[in-house]
Design a protein around this nucleic acid. Structure first.
Lengths: 344, 344
DNA sequence: CTGAAAGCGCTTACAG
DNA sequence: CTGAAAGCGCTTACAG
């Protein structure tokens, strides 16, 4: 059961290790090795079931053929989709993925980057959280290939791909307005990230354009707060906001908290309250009708992020110079029932 | 930005690389290196920010300090919980985890094991699917540490940990019976695995003990079938089974299909139909009342699996000889409403 | 108590 | 066209 090494193949084929290495790495003609010899070596390698030891290759070349992926949480469906696509696409370029997640801990990002650096990953795809600016700057200073996903830092010039957040919330708001909703609340999180700002701005802009007030209609939760506390705050918000007709949740996680709160209050969707949520989570498909989602095109985001990274790794085939890519979100109305016009 | 190597530390500290290596690996006194020298070396290493290159260590020692985890699907919540715990626990022993999933493809397991072998993982935690017997046998023949989780192969003598499936279904059935349900359907999947057999057996046993018929009450779906088709079959089953009062779904995934079907039929839980499901999925917490779950203690399973593996890696501290561990499941009734006694 | 040396399995200039 | 040799960064017998 001993692994066969390159040396073994060389011995069996009766040539030197270098020759085997050249052949197996497709440098046969470049090194002007005869076709006969080359194919003989290939054959021996195949017959012996030879696979190069990636650890040795990595040590020697300094390349690991591994990409580091840092997401917020592995368990979320949006990130699971992203991961799956990225893994698939990366495989086509001969790269593996190492997953890590910050698990909503603001401070954990730093360690993770360090950990991946130690593991000698060849590039990074990162969903940034506040506080990571420093580390990302270091990676760039170090000439490491980096792509940001889902968000970015305005001050840092690094390729990034994300959904068009402003457009997404605009779409959702337009939908609510069209259905006749006026008293629309907005639940967000106190995360200092561009995408959250964009979403809130789109909400405010819409409300103001429609001549509606936003006073006392915006709830901002703490990011690292525990779940139960979040549910409580959302519940109170819904209960204590007079005449509330609809709530826009700025992230999927907030939507989950909101839904739980709505259940606890015994409210019926969408008759008592309409609900709309950014970040489609696959489970929304299972919820009762009356929920609308702004769907992030996970596949496209993932694919694009990987392309941007491959570009930096010299394996790309286009998108030169581009550094910011925004993708249009979709709007999904769950179930057959559309929002019900409120009649008070 | 160049990484410092062990050699650099040796040069700076004015000693040989071997000495540095011994000190940093805690073999200072074993090698009878003076405390003064040792602490001086430690200091230099810290000051220079030295971290050993894991790739080099791995090549030299043949150990990677990486464990391979093969689950069915990374996106599922049950597996996400497992992964998280395993990662945490493994870290305490100095191990990293590489995740892979079969994504419900029966045949993919083989490739994955091969892939992990190439990456030189030091041990395996595997959620087995049919067809993996061969590969698992090879690992054992190869003396690789292996632990199975969530299921096992009766013929193969390898440590495994799983929930007590029979007990779980028994509990759930007892609950239904107690609430007055009699016409209880069972939806399972045609997977040739012990845990599915145990679950079905518990259902059958209960029904027979209660003097109830199971005729036409069991639906078995194909494992690799697509989602939509599964939903259709469950929907038909519910529609075409006269007087059906409750349905027991043997896995979480089946439960999701069932719930979707129930929505489509416009049925109300639990008034029209009661639903109970094995494998707690966190999202059930968000469903309307009337659903009951047999909850797999993911934490305990994960922790135990890792302990069993550490045992094999010589880092354990107990559980000697034990090879099969069954953990009792919990029963969770969602919401305030219990099952409603049927009155026809 | 400490150092010189071999070797893990590869790749790649360099020399023929 | 092909081989001998160095070296990636470590660990560990072995010799002092």
């Amino acid at each position: 059961m001993k692994r066969v090494s390159l040396k073994d193949i060389a011995r069996i084929a009766g040539v030197s290790p270098s020759t085997v290495s050249f052949v197996l790495n497709g440098k046969a003609k470049q090194m002007r090795i005869s076709e006969t010899l080359a194919s003989k070596i290939m054959e021996v390698a195949k017959k012996e079931g030879y696979h190069p030891n990636p650890v040795a290759v990595s040590l020697r070349t300094g390349k690991s053929q591994i990409l580091g992926l840092i997401v917020e949480t592995i368990s979320g469906n949006f990130f699971a989709s992203l991961s799956r696509i990225i893994e698939e696409e990366a495989a086509r370029f001969g790269y593996k993925i190492v997953y890590t997640s910050t698990e909503n801990k603001l401070q954990k990002g730093k360690e993770l980057i360090g950990m991946l650096a130690q593991r000698q990953v060849d590039g990074y795809i990162i969903t940034p959280t506040p506080g990571m600016e420093q580390d990302i700057n270091e990676l760039i200073a170090d000439n490491k290939p980096v792509v940001l996903m889902d968000s970015y830092f305005p001050g840092i010039d690094v390729p990034h791909v994300l959904v068009n957040n402003y457009e997404g919330v605009k779409k959702g708001m337009a939908h609510l307005i069209e259905k006749g909703y006026r008293r629309i609340g907005f639940v967000t999180v106190d995360l200092n990230l561009v995408q959250m700002e964009e979403r809130l701005k789109a909400y405010n802009d819409t409300m103001h354009q429609e001549g509606l007030t936003t006073e006392n209609l915006v709830l901002s939760l703490k990011y690292e707060e525990d779940k139960e506390k979040g549910i409580q705050q959302v519940t109170d918000f819904i209960k204590n906001t007079p005449e509330l007709e609809a709530v826009f949740f700025a992230t999927n996680y907030l939507g989950l908290l909101g839904l739980e709160g709505i259940h606890r209050l015994g409210l019926k969707l969408p008759d008592d309250l309409a609900m709309i949520c950014f970040d489609d989570h696959d489970v929304f498909r299972l919820y009762p009708p009356g929920i609308t989602c702004i769907q992030q095109p996970a596949e496209e985001i993932a694919r694009t992020a990987l392309e941007l990274l491959m570009e930096q790794l010299g394996k790309g085939n286009g998108i030169p110079g581009e550094t910011k890519i925004e993708i249009s979100p979709g709007l999904v109305v769950r179930g057959t029932t559309e929002f019900v016009q409120k009649v008070k």
